[in-house]
């Protein structure tokens, strides 16, 4: 319980910092450090199937994959079929998978709940696609863009954060499949060889009222 209070307090502090105007990290605090456990793991978010989910709920025996993504960002759209493919495949291999939409639907109508339901259906997601409409989970993670990946080891430690692969525009031209490589490393009981990558993406449209 003390840990939960600490997590919530950190999220609150981060949220307060973000509402105090433009600064060096205007739309996100420092990203979750490698080795950290998932923050805000007991915050409930509504999935496109109508059920409520927490990160704890979806934790997998092989590890847990969390992707901040959305309907509206063209960069996220370019990767979304790969998100569906990887998410479905590795969920069947024992990973917990959750895609979190952190955008405030009041700021981006395309990221409204009904639109999320339609997108999850069209992409045949077999894992929760949930709305973090208060952006509290994204802030707790220090996420700043969509898409942005966080992969946790089965023991709960963050072992990879960053991009899905090195080519948003063309799945057939990918030279470095960062996320798949990290997932396969966990399956093989090996260390993730590239634990951190970056990619261009859309800044998260944080909820300013929470």
């Amino acid at each position: 319980m003390r840990k939960l209070y600490s997590t919530l307090a950190l999220a609150l502090v981060a949220a307060m910092g973000l509402t105090m105007g433009l600064n060096a990290k205007a739309d996100g605090s420092e990203p979750l450090a490698l080795g950290s456990e998932a923050p805000a793991a007991d915050l409930q978010m509504r999935g496109t199937d109508g059920a409520m989910y927490t990160l704890t709920d979806v934790r997998g025996e092989k590890g847990t994959l969390v992707i901040f993504s959305c309907n509206s960002c063209p960069w996220a759209v370019k990767w979304e079929r790969r998100v569906a493919s990887i998410g479905n495949a590795y969920r069947n291999k024992g990973f917990g998978v959750m895609v979190i939409n952190p955008n405030d639907p009041a700021r981006v109508s395309e990221d409204g709940f009904d639109e999320m339901v339609a997108r999850a259906d069209s992409l045949s997601y077999e894992f929760p696609y949930v709305a973090d409409s208060t952006s509290r989970v994204a802030r707790a993670f220090g996420a700043s863009r969509t898409p942005e990946v966080f992969l946790f080891h089965a023991d709960g430690r963050l072992v990879y954060r960053g991009a899905i692969d090195d080519n948003a525009s063309d799945a057939n031209a990918v030279e470095a499949a960062y996320l798949k490589d990290a997932l396969d490393a966990l399956l093989a009981g090996k260390a993730v060889s590239i634990p951190e990558t970056k990619a261009l993406g859309c800044s998260i449209k944080f909820n300013r009222d929470s």
Binding site: N23, R145, S203
Partner: peptide, 28 residues
């Protein structure tokens, strides 16, 4: 991180003085 928009302000010596991501108002 790669998030956009991203904006930097450099001074006349080429030193980075400000950096932020997200949209800024004219006043900001």
């Amino acid at each position: 991180s790669g998030a956009m928009p991203a904006t930097w302000i450099y001074d006349g010596e080429g030193e980075k003085r400000h950096f932020w991501i997200g949209k800024a108002s004219r006043e900001q």
